[in-house]
Amino acid sequence: MLAFIIRRLLQSVLVMLTVGFIAFSLFNFVGDPVSLMLPPEATQADRDEVRKSLGLDQPFYVQFGTFLGNAVQGNFGISLRLGRPVSQLLAERLPATLELAMTAAVFGLLVGIPMGVYTALKRDKWTSKVLLTGSLVGVSLPNFLIGIFLILIFAVWLGWLPSFGRGETTAIGFWTTGFLTTEGLKAIILPAITLGFYPITLIMRLVRAEMLEVLRTDYIKFARARGLTNNAVHFGHALKNTLVPVITITGLQLGAIIAFAIITETVFQWPGMGLLFIQAVQFADIPVMAAYLCLIGFIFVVVNLVVDLLYFAVDPRLRVERSGSGGH
Protein backbone atom coordinates (compact mmCIF):
# COMPACT_ATOMS: atom_id res chain seq x y z
CA MET A 1 0.00 0.00 0.00
CA LEU A 2 2.63 2.46 1.07
CA ALA A 3 4.79 1.37 -1.82
CA PHE A 4 2.04 2.20 -4.28
CA ILE A 5 1.46 5.62 -2.81
CA ILE A 6 5.14 6.38 -2.82
CA ARG A 7 5.44 5.22 -6.39
CA ARG A 8 2.52 7.36 -7.49
CA LEU A 9 4.00 10.35 -5.68
CA LEU A 10 7.35 9.75 -7.29
CA GLN A 11 5.74 9.54 -10.68
CA SER A 12 3.98 12.83 -10.07
CA VAL A 13 7.21 14.45 -9.03
CA LEU A 14 8.82 13.12 -12.17
CA VAL A 15 6.08 14.58 -14.33
CA MET A 16 6.44 17.93 -12.61
CA LEU A 17 10.20 17.79 -13.09
CA THR A 18 9.69 17.22 -16.80
CA VAL A 19 7.27 20.10 -17.05
CA GLY A 20 9.63 22.22 -14.99
CA PHE A 21 12.47 21.33 -17.31
CA ILE A 22 10.49 22.41 -20.35
CA ALA A 23 9.59 25.66 -18.62
CA PHE A 24 13.23 26.15 -17.63
CA SER A 25 14.40 25.58 -21.21
CA LEU A 26 11.83 28.09 -22.42
CA PHE A 27 13.11 30.54 -19.89
CA ASN A 28 16.80 30.16 -20.36
CA PHE A 29 17.41 29.05 -23.90
CA VAL A 30 14.51 30.43 -25.87
CA GLY A 31 14.10 33.66 -24.01
CA ASP A 32 17.75 34.68 -23.66
CA PRO A 33 17.22 36.61 -20.43
CA VAL A 34 20.31 38.72 -20.97
CA SER A 35 19.19 40.39 -24.15
CA LEU A 36 15.71 40.71 -22.71
CA MET A 37 17.05 42.71 -19.81
CA LEU A 38 19.57 44.91 -21.54
CA PRO A 39 19.16 47.71 -24.06
CA PRO A 40 20.52 46.84 -27.52
CA GLU A 41 23.45 49.22 -27.16
CA ALA A 42 24.81 47.38 -24.12
CA THR A 43 28.46 46.41 -24.23
CA GLN A 44 29.86 42.91 -23.86
CA ALA A 45 31.03 43.84 -20.37
CA ASP A 46 27.46 44.75 -19.42
CA ARG A 47 26.31 41.44 -20.81
CA ASP A 48 28.83 39.45 -18.81
CA GLU A 49 27.91 41.40 -15.71
CA VAL A 50 24.20 40.58 -16.08
CA ARG A 51 25.02 37.01 -17.04
CA LYS A 52 26.91 36.68 -13.79
CA SER A 53 24.30 38.39 -11.65
CA LEU A 54 21.64 36.05 -13.03
CA GLY A 55 23.82 33.06 -12.29
CA LEU A 56 24.00 32.15 -15.98
CA ASP A 57 27.72 31.42 -15.67
CA GLN A 58 26.89 28.55 -13.33
CA PRO A 59 26.82 24.96 -14.57
CA PHE A 60 23.55 23.84 -16.10
CA TYR A 61 22.32 21.69 -13.18
CA VAL A 62 22.91 24.49 -10.68
CA GLN A 63 20.83 26.84 -12.82
CA PHE A 64 18.07 24.27 -13.12
CA GLY A 65 18.17 23.76 -9.36
CA THR A 66 17.84 27.47 -8.75
CA PHE A 67 14.97 27.64 -11.20
CA LEU A 68 13.15 24.79 -9.46
CA GLY A 69 13.77 26.34 -6.08
CA ASN A 70 12.28 29.60 -7.28
CA ALA A 71 9.39 27.86 -9.02
CA VAL A 72 8.44 25.92 -5.89
CA GLN A 73 8.20 29.23 -4.06
CA GLY A 74 6.06 30.57 -6.87
CA ASN A 75 8.74 32.89 -8.15
CA PHE A 76 8.67 32.98 -11.94
CA GLY A 77 10.23 36.35 -12.45
CA ILE A 78 8.80 39.47 -14.00
CA SER A 79 6.43 39.65 -16.93
CA LEU A 80 8.13 41.26 -19.89
CA ARG A 81 4.91 42.85 -21.03
CA LEU A 82 3.41 44.14 -17.81
CA GLY A 83 6.54 44.50 -15.73
CA ARG A 84 4.99 42.85 -12.68
CA PRO A 85 5.79 39.58 -10.90
CA VAL A 86 4.28 36.70 -12.85
CA SER A 87 3.09 34.92 -9.72
CA GLN A 88 1.10 37.99 -8.74
CA LEU A 89 -0.46 38.25 -12.20
CA LEU A 90 -1.43 34.57 -12.19
CA ALA A 91 -2.80 34.73 -8.66
CA GLU A 92 -5.01 37.67 -9.58
CA ARG A 93 -6.44 35.80 -12.55
CA LEU A 94 -6.65 32.31 -11.14
CA PRO A 95 -10.06 32.72 -9.44
CA ALA A 96 -11.67 33.96 -12.65
CA THR A 97 -10.47 30.99 -14.64
CA LEU A 98 -11.25 28.41 -11.97
CA GLU A 99 -14.77 29.71 -11.45
CA LEU A 100 -15.39 29.65 -15.18
CA ALA A 101 -13.96 26.16 -15.62
CA MET A 102 -15.91 24.70 -12.67
CA THR A 103 -19.16 26.25 -13.83
CA ALA A 104 -18.59 24.95 -17.35
CA ALA A 105 -17.83 21.46 -16.03
CA VAL A 106 -20.92 21.41 -13.84
CA PHE A 107 -22.99 22.70 -16.73
CA GLY A 108 -21.54 19.97 -18.93
CA LEU A 109 -22.50 17.30 -16.40
CA LEU A 110 -26.00 18.67 -15.84
CA VAL A 111 -26.82 18.69 -19.52
CA GLY A 112 -24.61 15.90 -20.78
CA ILE A 113 -25.67 13.13 -18.39
CA PRO A 114 -29.43 13.26 -19.07
CA MET A 115 -28.74 13.43 -22.78
CA GLY A 116 -26.39 10.47 -22.57
CA VAL A 117 -28.85 8.40 -20.57
CA TYR A 118 -31.65 9.20 -22.94
CA THR A 119 -29.71 8.28 -26.05
CA ALA A 120 -28.56 5.04 -24.46
CA LEU A 121 -31.98 3.91 -23.26
CA LYS A 122 -33.89 5.02 -26.35
CA ARG A 123 -31.20 3.87 -28.70
CA ASP A 124 -33.32 3.50 -31.75
CA LYS A 125 -35.62 6.44 -31.36
CA TRP A 126 -35.20 9.18 -33.93
CA THR A 127 -34.76 11.80 -31.20
CA SER A 128 -31.67 9.93 -30.03
CA LYS A 129 -30.28 9.93 -33.51
CA VAL A 130 -30.95 13.64 -33.81
CA LEU A 131 -29.22 14.23 -30.47
CA LEU A 132 -26.24 12.14 -31.52
CA THR A 133 -25.88 13.93 -34.83
CA GLY A 134 -26.47 17.19 -33.01
CA SER A 135 -23.61 16.38 -30.70
CA LEU A 136 -21.43 16.04 -33.78
CA VAL A 137 -22.40 19.57 -34.69
CA GLY A 138 -21.28 20.48 -31.19
CA VAL A 139 -17.83 19.02 -31.83
CA SER A 140 -17.62 20.54 -35.26
CA LEU A 141 -18.48 24.07 -34.15
CA PRO A 142 -15.31 25.82 -33.11
CA ASN A 143 -15.51 27.29 -29.65
CA PHE A 144 -14.98 30.84 -30.82
CA LEU A 145 -17.85 30.66 -33.30
CA ILE A 146 -20.21 29.53 -30.55
CA GLY A 147 -19.05 32.43 -28.41
CA ILE A 148 -19.49 34.96 -31.20
CA PHE A 149 -22.99 33.75 -31.99
CA LEU A 150 -24.03 33.66 -28.33
CA ILE A 151 -22.86 37.25 -27.94
CA LEU A 152 -24.69 38.26 -31.09
CA ILE A 153 -27.95 36.67 -29.94
CA PHE A 154 -28.06 37.14 -26.18
CA ALA A 155 -26.04 40.29 -25.66
CA VAL A 156 -26.60 42.32 -28.79
CA TRP A 157 -29.98 41.31 -30.16
CA LEU A 158 -31.81 40.38 -26.97
CA GLY A 159 -29.72 42.38 -24.53
CA TRP A 160 -30.30 39.82 -21.77
CA LEU A 161 -26.79 38.97 -20.75
CA PRO A 162 -23.46 40.76 -20.62
CA SER A 163 -21.03 40.09 -23.43
CA PHE A 164 -17.72 40.52 -21.67
CA GLY A 165 -15.90 40.53 -18.38
CA ARG A 166 -16.87 39.15 -14.98
CA GLY A 167 -19.35 41.76 -13.85
CA GLU A 168 -19.01 42.79 -10.24
CA THR A 169 -16.74 40.66 -8.11
CA THR A 170 -16.46 40.33 -4.37
CA ALA A 171 -13.11 39.84 -2.71
CA ILE A 172 -12.86 37.14 -0.06
CA GLY A 173 -9.30 37.27 1.11
CA PHE A 174 -7.11 36.75 -1.93
CA TRP A 175 -9.98 35.18 -3.86
CA THR A 176 -12.33 37.26 -5.95
CA THR A 177 -15.65 35.69 -6.75
CA GLY A 178 -18.36 36.63 -9.18
CA PHE A 179 -20.87 34.24 -7.59
CA LEU A 180 -22.13 36.68 -4.99
CA THR A 181 -23.52 39.42 -7.20
CA THR A 182 -26.27 39.30 -9.79
CA GLU A 183 -24.03 40.91 -12.36
CA GLY A 184 -21.30 38.39 -11.68
CA LEU A 185 -23.70 35.48 -12.09
CA LYS A 186 -25.15 36.89 -15.27
CA ALA A 187 -21.68 37.48 -16.66
CA ILE A 188 -20.64 33.87 -16.24
CA ILE A 189 -23.59 32.34 -18.10
CA LEU A 190 -22.52 32.88 -21.72
CA PRO A 191 -18.83 32.04 -21.22
CA ALA A 192 -19.75 28.94 -19.22
CA ILE A 193 -22.11 27.71 -21.92
CA THR A 194 -19.48 28.33 -24.57
CA LEU A 195 -16.83 26.51 -22.60
CA GLY A 196 -19.27 23.78 -21.55
CA PHE A 197 -20.32 22.95 -25.10
CA TYR A 198 -17.51 20.53 -25.74
CA PRO A 199 -17.76 18.77 -22.35
CA ILE A 200 -21.50 18.27 -22.96
CA THR A 201 -20.76 16.36 -26.14
CA LEU A 202 -18.00 14.40 -24.52
CA ILE A 203 -20.03 13.52 -21.43
CA MET A 204 -23.11 12.63 -23.41
CA ARG A 205 -21.18 10.24 -25.63
CA LEU A 206 -19.31 8.80 -22.68
CA VAL A 207 -22.46 8.20 -20.65
CA ARG A 208 -24.12 6.62 -23.64
CA ALA A 209 -21.22 4.28 -24.32
CA GLU A 210 -20.85 3.36 -20.65
CA MET A 211 -24.56 2.76 -20.23
CA LEU A 212 -24.67 0.55 -23.30
CA GLU A 213 -21.80 -1.52 -22.00
CA VAL A 214 -23.09 -1.75 -18.46
CA LEU A 215 -26.55 -2.72 -19.68
CA ARG A 216 -24.94 -5.66 -21.41
CA THR A 217 -23.19 -6.99 -18.29
CA ASP A 218 -24.29 -10.08 -16.47
CA TYR A 219 -24.93 -8.18 -13.33
CA ILE A 220 -27.62 -6.09 -14.99
CA LYS A 221 -29.14 -9.19 -16.53
CA PHE A 222 -29.14 -10.61 -13.04
CA ALA A 223 -30.92 -7.57 -11.69
CA ARG A 224 -33.56 -7.91 -14.37
CA ALA A 225 -33.89 -11.57 -13.56
CA ARG A 226 -34.54 -10.60 -9.97
CA GLY A 227 -37.64 -8.87 -11.29
CA LEU A 228 -36.59 -5.29 -10.68
CA THR A 229 -38.45 -2.65 -12.66
CA ASN A 230 -36.81 -1.07 -15.69
CA ASN A 231 -36.41 2.23 -13.85
CA ALA A 232 -34.72 0.60 -10.89
CA VAL A 233 -32.35 -1.21 -13.20
CA HIS A 234 -31.60 1.77 -15.38
CA PHE A 235 -31.23 4.45 -12.78
CA GLY A 236 -30.52 2.50 -9.60
CA HIS A 237 -27.87 0.28 -11.05
CA ALA A 238 -26.79 1.12 -14.54
CA LEU A 239 -26.61 4.91 -14.28
CA LYS A 240 -25.00 4.88 -10.88
CA ASN A 241 -22.28 2.62 -12.12
CA THR A 242 -21.83 4.69 -15.21
CA LEU A 243 -21.37 7.90 -13.32
CA VAL A 244 -18.16 6.93 -11.57
CA PRO A 245 -15.99 6.84 -14.64
CA VAL A 246 -17.91 9.75 -16.13
CA ILE A 247 -17.27 11.99 -13.17
CA THR A 248 -13.69 10.81 -12.99
CA ILE A 249 -13.07 11.66 -16.59
CA THR A 250 -14.78 15.00 -16.22
CA GLY A 251 -12.53 15.68 -13.25
CA LEU A 252 -9.51 14.71 -15.27
CA GLN A 253 -10.78 16.92 -18.07
CA LEU A 254 -10.72 19.91 -15.75
CA GLY A 255 -7.16 20.66 -16.80
CA ALA A 256 -8.25 20.56 -20.42
CA ILE A 257 -11.20 22.80 -19.70
CA ILE A 258 -8.94 25.30 -17.98
CA ALA A 259 -6.67 25.35 -20.99
CA PHE A 260 -9.58 25.56 -23.40
CA ALA A 261 -10.73 28.58 -21.46
CA ILE A 262 -8.01 30.45 -23.39
CA ILE A 263 -10.39 30.73 -26.34
CA THR A 264 -13.50 31.50 -24.35
CA GLU A 265 -11.65 34.09 -22.31
CA THR A 266 -10.43 35.78 -25.47
CA VAL A 267 -13.89 35.95 -27.01
CA PHE A 268 -15.54 37.21 -23.82
CA GLN A 269 -12.58 39.24 -22.55
CA TRP A 270 -12.83 37.20 -19.36
CA PRO A 271 -10.00 38.41 -17.13
CA GLY A 272 -8.54 34.98 -16.45
CA MET A 273 -5.23 33.23 -16.92
CA GLY A 274 -6.06 32.21 -20.48
CA LEU A 275 -6.35 35.79 -21.66
CA LEU A 276 -3.08 36.53 -19.92
CA PHE A 277 -1.49 33.54 -21.65
CA ILE A 278 -2.66 34.37 -25.16
CA GLN A 279 -1.37 37.90 -24.78
CA ALA A 280 1.90 36.43 -23.53
CA VAL A 281 2.16 34.26 -26.66
CA GLN A 282 1.52 37.20 -28.96
CA PHE A 283 4.07 39.28 -27.11
CA ALA A 284 6.54 36.41 -26.61
CA ASP A 285 6.35 37.02 -22.86
CA ILE A 286 8.35 33.94 -21.86
CA PRO A 287 8.08 34.16 -18.04
CA VAL A 288 4.29 34.18 -18.22
CA MET A 289 4.26 31.30 -20.70
CA ALA A 290 6.60 29.23 -18.55
CA ALA A 291 4.65 29.87 -15.37
CA TYR A 292 1.31 29.09 -16.99
CA LEU A 293 2.70 25.82 -18.31
CA CYS A 294 3.91 24.82 -14.85
CA LEU A 295 0.59 25.75 -13.29
CA ILE A 296 -1.49 23.72 -15.75
CA GLY A 297 0.91 20.80 -15.31
CA PHE A 298 0.58 21.07 -11.57
CA ILE A 299 -3.21 21.10 -11.68
CA PHE A 300 -3.19 18.02 -13.89
CA VAL A 301 -0.79 16.12 -11.66
CA VAL A 302 -2.74 16.94 -8.53
CA VAL A 303 -6.09 15.95 -10.03
CA ASN A 304 -4.65 12.68 -11.30
CA LEU A 305 -2.98 11.90 -8.05
CA VAL A 306 -6.11 12.57 -6.06
CA VAL A 307 -8.22 10.42 -8.37
CA ASP A 308 -5.74 7.58 -8.25
CA LEU A 309 -5.35 7.67 -4.49
CA LEU A 310 -9.09 7.90 -4.04
CA TYR A 311 -9.64 4.79 -6.10
CA PHE A 312 -6.88 3.09 -4.29
CA ALA A 313 -8.49 3.86 -0.97
CA VAL A 314 -11.85 2.55 -2.11
CA ASP A 315 -10.84 -0.47 -4.11
CA PRO A 316 -8.08 -2.64 -2.73
CA ARG A 317 -8.16 -4.77 -5.85
CA LEU A 318 -6.34 -2.07 -7.66
CA ARG A 319 -3.27 -2.96 -5.71
CA VAL A 320 -3.08 -6.32 -7.38
CA GLU A 321 -3.85 -4.78 -10.71
CA ARG A 322 -1.21 -2.13 -10.34
CA SER A 323 1.58 -4.36 -9.30
CA GLY A 324 0.92 -6.47 -12.39
CA SER A 325 2.06 -5.57 -15.85
CA GLY A 326 -0.50 -2.86 -16.30
CA GLY A 327 -1.00 -3.87 -19.88
CA HIS A 328 -4.53 -2.99 -20.81
Binding site: V15, T18, L26, A259, F260, V281, I296, G297, F300, N304
Partner: peptide, 21 residues
Amino acid sequence: DVQLSFPAILIALLIDGVARV
Protein backbone atom coordinates in the same frame (compact mmCIF):
# COMPACT_ATOMS: atom_id res chain seq x y z
CA ASP B 1 0.83 11.00 -20.08
CA VAL B 2 2.58 14.27 -19.49
CA GLN B 3 1.60 15.51 -22.89
CA LEU B 4 -2.01 14.43 -22.44
CA SER B 5 -2.27 16.75 -19.48
CA PHE B 6 -1.87 19.61 -21.91
CA PRO B 7 -4.66 19.96 -24.44
CA ALA B 8 -3.69 20.14 -28.08
CA ILE B 9 -4.51 23.81 -28.36
CA LEU B 10 -2.20 24.72 -25.49
CA ILE B 11 0.72 22.72 -26.87
CA ALA B 12 0.20 24.19 -30.30
CA LEU B 13 0.09 27.67 -28.76
CA LEU B 14 3.29 27.02 -26.84
CA ILE B 15 5.13 25.73 -29.89
CA ASP B 16 3.92 28.70 -31.86
CA GLY B 17 4.97 31.09 -29.10
CA VAL B 18 8.42 29.54 -28.91
CA ALA B 19 8.76 29.70 -32.69
CA ARG B 20 7.87 33.37 -32.53
CA VAL B 21 10.74 34.01 -30.12
